[in-house]
Design a protein around this nucleic acid. Structure first.
Ligand code: SF4
Ligand code: SF4
Lengths: 166, 166
DNA sequence: CTTATTACGGATATTTATTATCCGTATTTA
DNA sequence: TAAATACGGATAATAAATATCCGTAATAAG
């Protein structure tokens, strides 16, 4: 059980976009080159983020992506769910119905209370999501600013600027 | 991202074993029939549980599986990690090293503090595991006893006993 | 208007993980 | 001795993740 690498890419890209001056954009090509990952494949992740309303893309030359709203209003959960889906990690296939003396499954349309096993797993899932929801891109930016040497931050920003004006 | 169905099977089987009188055993064949799942495949999950020290299997006729320790000392996390592995759900491929102005990766043997992104994901993972660790098989048994009609519990127990003496 | 550049989305191939089955070996009870 | 069992290795089938390709529409600049 592993999150797909789209998640890591999406988080990184959002982190980079969060450090971008208002009304500037970065094309997918540059984001891919910056991270050393396949451009076409990264595009899928970016499109997922876009259709989830987290980033917004604009067409044409000088086009590219930028955050669709303030970094303080984008949580890790938003990003993870955008690329990984909102589905639960534990799926119940109702094997209890195969037990010889099981209760009969509910009539079509009606739903049954999830069993005790499933509820524990769902609650764990909720705890995971809850933690992801408690951290925003703004929080991340603050941490990065504290931990990454200024030289590195500046260097990357300049590399980006140079590439975009080339 | 989804847990494998082994997890569901393992949880169910442990739940059944927890309701078993001391010094009785259930062979894999019966556990599979009880749940309507493929026997040979279920065996893999049971072997994983066994080698993790959660259940113990004995050979020969009248052999089978039973819990290796008291239900109160077996947590959901024990079971999940036994079949799913202890690996983290978020894997960091260190794509930051591809950034043009990245810090150099640490010398061989040395480790680097995980980056801010990874730490958030790891903490979420920890929250998930922590919740799973807080629930034991004994807790589950108590809930099941409360929620499942006595008729069903009895019926299944009798089905099991009949099969084992056949 | 034309051209270059971009996001977007559909189709498809490749690789890996999950799901499932098969069978031989060792151990234990009757 | 024979039947029943756990165990583990090998392998096949299926699904999911990873990756690439290409056509379309939109936009900015010359
Ligand atoms: S997890 Fe619960 S609901 Fe799902 S199959 Fe098992 S017993 Fe049934
Ligand atoms: S998650 Fe953090 S450590 Fe992992 S690649 Fe991204 S920046 Fe690097």
């Amino acid at each position: 059980m592993q999150l797909k690498n789209h998640v890591e890419w999406a988080l990184h890209c959002c982190s980079v976009l969060a450090a971008l001056p208002e009304d500037e954009r970065i094309p997918a090509k540059l984001l891919a080159e910056l991270h050393g990952i396949p451009r076409e494949y990264l595009s899928k992740a970016l499109q997922a983020l876009s259709s989830a309303g987290i980033i917004s893309g604009t067409l044409g030359p000088t086009g590219g992506y930028k955050l669709a709203r303030a970094p303080g209003r984008i949580t890790f959960l938003d990003i993870v769910e955008a690329v990984e889906g909102k589905g639960r990690t534990f799926v119940c296939t109702e094997i209890r119905d195969n037990m010889p003396c099981a209760e009969k499954p509910p009539a079509k349309g009606k739903t049954r209370r999830p069993c005790a096993v499933a509820r524990v797993m769902y609650d764990a899932d909720k705890a995971w999501r809850s933690h992801l929801q408690s951290v925003t891109l703004a929080d991340l930016a603050k941490t990065v600013e504290k931990e990454v040497p200024l030289r590195v931050l500046k260097g990357n920003a300049e590399w980006l600027a140079a590439k975009r004006n080339a």
